[in-house]
Write a protein that binds this DNA or RNA. Structure first.
Lengths: 207, 207
DNA sequence: ATAAAAATGTTGCAACTGCAACTAATAAAA
DNA sequence: TTTTATTAGTTGCAGTTGCAACATTTTTAT
């Protein structure tokens, strides 16, 4: 899998069906509109999949970092909600067409072959990410959502102390909760000695 | 894709690496414990992926009907939560090992080939399902969750009137909300003339 | 057929969460 | 460097949701 990820980074050298583009902070990387069956892979930087619903509520549907995969192919747009991916930091992104990659390249290039062999694995990583997301969102209280998310970050970082990947405002949009209510709960968590907070650095003090 | 689904149903004739089993209502189809990389396909019937968290809250993580795919391979178990799939009706299920299916069959059987060719598509259907799930769960109120779910069922059924696939008690566990609060909201929706309800048959009256 | 269990339906009340409206602090732009 | 915009942090209040504790109906088991 690692070797595939390394390989991916050199993909334009391997296949002319792939495009690499750079994005500055806050630029829109792609908008989910038509069914272009686009697949994107984030090479470097970070980005968010953002949705605005009909009530104007913003949701950060997913947060992407290096090697994460996204694109229309993963999202059948049932509603009229606006859906786009926005760069959080300067980012580099690869663009493929799923349909083109699914079928053999005319030139029978090695890239196509390797991509096809690893496609399932790539999509499976997405499934895992989404399951984690569902697990967070099904938690019944703001406190449990926060602690659940902190626990994930703590495990990923091999450390009880970790940085939030985005601002507190965006954290609320990610957990699908009101920002002020979240701030209040963060205070309670501090008061109860469950977390320590210093800017966007959090430390889990229990368990 | 249809032909693949049809093909799948005859799979034991095609490959001895596949098992078909029948389950009675309420039987446990599989438990997500070890990383056996199991993939299951529901041939007939219906089933739920159920999770109990440390607070004893039950969540119906997913609801499966014919041709849906599930299994440990899709779920990296990060927490100690109990996770299992339970038959809602009498069901028939195919079991594969992802690892066995990934690699060529010793006998080079046709089933393996077709399975591999369609694996990505199969997993993509899972991603779509999960995205729909996330969209529901990020809705901010009980009313919006109910209407969002009803809208999905209405579209799937090509009809403003449809049956709920499970009991109201389970619907609450699926939407991750309190049952009595949900019942109250259902009453308000009726009072406001937004839905009509007759047992587990719902009709959307607006839009 | 009858008892037991599960699901539905209801309600008061308390707790939690969202909303609005601020101030303070920090970051970005002119 | 100063202004402007964004983010963080607070709080009162109202509305929503969860909890508990029922009664009623339906389903399942004996």
């Amino acid at each position: 899998m690692i070797s595939f990820q390394e390989f991916i980074k050199d993909c334009e050298k391997n296949c002319n069906k792939v495009q690499r583009k750079s994005f500055k902070k806050d630029e829109i990387i792609t908008t989910y509109i038509a069914k272009r069956n686009q697949i994107c892979i984030l090479i470097s930087g970070s980005a968010d999949l953002v949705r605005y619903d009909s009530n104007g509520n913003k949701t950060i549907v997913e947060h992407f970092t290096s090697n994460d995969i996204f694109g229309e192919i993963f999202y059948t747009i049932a509603t009229n909600n606006e859906l786009f991916v926005k760069a959080r930091h300067n980012s580099e992104v690869l663009f493929f067409s799923y349909d083109l990659m699914k079928h053999k390249c005319k030139t029978n290039c090695a890239f196509h072959k390797i991509f096809q062999d690893n496609l399932s694995e790539l999509i499976l990583s997405k499934v895992t990410m989404l399951n984690t997301r569902v697990e967070l969102l099904t938690k019944r209280s703001i406190r449990d959502k926060l602690l659940g998310y902190f626990s994930i970050l703590s495990v990923r970082n091999f450390n009880r102390t970790f940085s939030l990947p985005f601002s507190l405002t965006d954290l609320a949009d990610y957990l699908s909760i009101d920002r002020s209510a979240m701030m209040r709960e963060l205070k309670y968590l501090k008061d109860d000695g469950i977390i320590k907070k210093n800017g966007n650095k959090i430390t889990l003090l229990i368990q």
